[in-house]
């Protein structure tokens, strides 16, 4: 169920189509069982034996944090008491560098959706812990993390070449771009686990 479309893509995103790439997969039988009990190990919430829900703080290199505005995920500067509006990322790691990303306690998930020539980031009202890496329809929720120094970028697994981005300007929607080097966009994020 689609809650809201996050945004049109970042400037100039739709112009260059990117060839489909195969995503590297780990040992597939690892995730075949999802049953298991909920318990806590250290600071990590264990949803099942093969699932773990982590909580990360995300902000871009220009210090913009994420928050919801009219069911749209935007990045901007929050001040004093408004900082409680900040959305943290809920993360379910699925294999090497790949993960599902959600917000709002994992109730809304980030997805890359292609329709026609358009590729866009979409917030969908699904529970992050219900997603499965074996289901083709859940691939749109998968993001590949790549680290460079202290910062992290997120590429969509379903839309290869498309990266999570924010605009330079504050209070603009978080979206996806296939031109990550563009000066008006930010694709580098600080991504730190919450203790």
């Amino acid at each position: 169920s689609v809650l809201t479309s996050i945004s049109p893509p970042c400037h100039g995103c739709t112009e260059i189509p990117h060839p489909w790439q195969k995503v590297e997969c780990g040992p597939s039988e690892l995730w075949s069982t999802q049953e298991g009990v909920e318990h806590r190990v250290g600071h990590t919430e264990v949803v099942s034996h093969s699932r773990v829900l982590l909580h990360f703080r995300i902000w871009d290199v220009n210090q913009k944090t994420f928050y919801l505005r009219n069911n749209q995920l935007v990045a901007g500067y929050l001040q004093g008491p408004s900082t409680k509006l900040e959305e943290k990322l809920n993360v379910v790691p699925i294999e090497s560098h790949a993960m599902f990303l959600g917000i709002h306690g994992g109730k809304l998930c980030l997805a890359c959706v292609k329709s026609g020539d358009e590729t866009r980031l979409q917030l969908e009202a699904v529970n992050i812990t219900d997603l499965s890496k074996n289901k083709e329809q859940d691939k749109r929720f998968t993001f590949i993390r790549s680290d460079s120094g202290p910062t992290t970028s997120f590429e969509s697994a379903a839309c290869p070449g498309w990266f999570l981005c924010t605009a330079l300007e504050a209070d603009r929607p978080v979206s996806l771009t296939n031109t990550p080097e563009e000066a008006m966009l930010v694709t580098k994020f600080y991504f730190q686990m919450e203790r």
Binding site: G36, H43, T44, L54, M193
Partner: peptide, 16 residues
Amino acid sequence: STTMLWWMANTTSIES
């Protein structure tokens, strides 16, 4: 803290 460690029997979790 972000590292998960578990055992499996064939393709099933130990508990199940």
